[in-house]
Every structure is written in structure tokens, then in C-alpha cells.
Simulated assay, not measured.
Amino acid sequence: MTSRHVERFLEMMVAERGASPRTIEAYGRDLADFAGHMRVAGRPPEDATADDVRAYLAGLAAAAMTPRTMNRRLSALRQFFRFLFAEGSRADDPTATVDSPRLGRPLPKYLSETDVERLLDAARAIDGARGLRATALLEILYATGLRVSELVSLPLSAVARDPAVLVVRGKGSKERMVPLSEPARDAARAWIEARGALLGEAAARKNRWLFPSRSKDGHLTRDGFAKMLGEIAVAAGLPPSKVSPHVLRHSFASHLLAHGADLRSVQQMLGHADISTTQIYTHILDERLRTLVNSHHPLAGKG
């Protein structure tokens, strides 16, 4: 049976906030579940303490509920108790001192080095200028870890003089320098020589982008590159759903760390403002450390 306080709260959600029937149903279900928890304690939900709320969340965690769903339940409780406090039905809000369950961060998806090589081989197998463009795109992306928007909007001047270091203008117009590998430089040179074949020599000469197109921006679009990458994945025998520009960016960072690069250098090359963003890759460092210990520690494998 729904308490009158819960009923009044749901009525307020409809009248003052215009909540949809589906939202009201979800809030009602979440509050009913909490009321069931409080019933075991012999008290109505509106009399809950902070410890009651924490015990409820602990029970959800023990039942293997996801942190995202637990946060949704806690959000419903926060709004309910804030309503009771605002209208004077309670002198405090028991959820005010309760921490939200940590969502955590999903591990980045990345390809193996073998799979990246398969992609590159498939790009190289494409005939003519399209193949040279596809190869240049993949070589530069895998060599630098650029964001897809940074990659497709590279100006021709960025690589025209065959630089060993690529200067990239990233988020907030901040510039950063990223080393450009020899294979990427070779691919860029080959593409520049064939660049006029897709748009026509006259149009290509007037276009300032490394990867020109007839789009309104004048360069290859993000969607155009994603579609191209999907076709290359199929040719390489890889599921297109597992291959994307961002997966290649993750692969760049993961493979660098696996081969000994330090986190701060990878942060700078990726253009992350805060190293905490780069720390999603620490699982690679953890795996490398485990491998080192298992391979070189005198007591590894004993016991």
C-alpha cells in the first residue's frame, strides 16, 4: 500500500514538473521497493534515516544491481526526501549525506596489433587513389591517435613538407605535437601525389585540406570516414561493429603503453587536458607489470 506522502510526492511531480506517466510509474516502482525495505524495519519510508538508505543501497549492491540502476533508485529517494523537507514534513534530508554509487569507467575497446595490420593490409589492397587515401588515413590515425574530427580536417600544409612531427589543433584550439611515423609519412606522401585524382587536379589545387571532398566543409566528413573504415573492416575479415575511428585511437594508446610508453607522454599525444582521462588505459600498464613479474621474478611460477 502506497503511503500518503509518496502519493503526494507523485502528485507534485505531475502537477508541478509535468512528469510523464512512464516517469511517474518508474518513481512509484522505485519508492515502493524502498518502502518494502523499510517495512522489514517496521517503519514507513518517510521515516527513513541515512543509515536506512545506506543499508538499502548495500542490499541492492549485494543483489548485483548495476551502479547505474542503483543511482537511479537513489535519485528517486533524493527527490522524495527533498520534497518532504521542502514542505515541512521532515526536518532533514536523510539522503544528503549518502554518497552515490560509483559508476566506474568502462575499459576502452581496442584492436590487437594483428588486427590493425589486417586493416592496413586491406586498405593497401584498394586500387588507385582511393586506396592511397584509405592507407594514409589509417596510417596517420594509428600513428598519432588523433580524434576523427582532427584527422579529417588536417590541412594539407600539416604534412606538405614531410614533417617528423605533426602539429595538431585540438579541442579549445589548443595545439599539440605528435610524432609521425615513417610509414605514416610514406603514406601521406603517396596520397598527396595522387590527391588530384579524386576531385580533379584544378579542384584539388584550390582545396586546402589534406583529405578534400565535395562536402560543405570541403574535407572528408566523419561519417564518410566511418563508412570507409567499415568497408575496410569487412575486407579485412573483421566485424565492422568492432572497428571505429575511436577504437583505432584507443588502439594507438593501448599499444604504446604495452610497448613501454609512459602515461604522461600518451596523455600529451592524445590531447587530454587531464591525466585522469588517460588513466582509463592503466589496465594495459597493469597487464604489462604482471607479465614482467611472471617472466622475470625469481619466484614466479613457484609455490
Rank of each mutant, 00 (worst) to 15 (best):
A258Y: 01
R82M: 07
S112W: 05
I284T: 06
T66F: 00
S251K: 00
R17I: 03
S213C: 01
I140K: 10
S276T: 10
G200E: 06
T277I: 09
D47T: 08
D99Y: 14
E16S: 07
P239N: 05
L146W: 06
I275H: 11
A300F: 12
V165N: 01
P239F: 05
R169W: 02
R185A: 11
L166H: 02
L166C: 11
G128S: 08
S241M: 14
A48D: 05
H297Q: 02
A194T: 07
K302I: 05
T23L: 14
L57F: 05
V152P: 05
L220Y: 12
D33E: 15
K227E: 12
D30E: 12
D51Y: 13
L10S: 10
V165E: 13
V159Y: 13
A15S: 09
L119Y: 06
D92N: 13
G271P: 10
E87Y: 05
H37R: 00
R17A: 04
A233C: 07
G36W: 03
F83S: 07
G224S: 14
W191D: 10
P212I: 12
Y281D: 11
F80V: 04
V152R: 08
R214F: 03
V152Q: 01
L154E: 00
A188T: 09
F9S: 06
A197F: 01
R264K: 12
L270T: 01
E46T: 07
G172N: 00
H219V: 04
A226Q: 02
G18D: 03
I192E: 08
S251I: 13
E201Y: 06
L180I: 02
M269R: 12
Y27P: 02
L198H: 08
A190Y: 02
A188Y: 08
L199M: 14
A136R: 15
N207E: 03
I284H: 04
D286E: 13
D127V: 13
A91N: 02
G196S: 02
V168L: 04
A158W: 08
A55W: 01
A48H: 00
A76M: 09
A253L: 03
A261K: 08
E113H: 15
P245I: 01
E182Q: 12
S181W: 01
G18Q: 11
I280E: 00
R102Q: 14
A125V: 01
D121L: 07
T95W: 00
M13Y: 11
E11C: 00
E193A: 15
L198V: 03
K242F: 06
K206I: 04
L120W: 06
K227R: 15
V152H: 06
P108C: 04
A190T: 02
K216W: 04
D115V: 03
T23F: 11
F225R: 14
R82P: 11
S153W: 10
I192K: 04
T97H: 03
V152F: 03
K242T: 08
K302P: 01
P240M: 04
L238T: 02
G128R: 05
E7A: 14
L60M: 15
T23Q: 08
L132S: 07
Y27H: 12
P163W: 05
L210D: 03
R72K: 15
V159F: 08
A76K: 08
A35I: 07
S20L: 08
P101R: 05
P106L: 14
K216H: 09
D262Y: 10
I280Q: 03
H255A: 05
P21W: 08
L199W: 02
L285P: 09
K174C: 09
R169M: 14
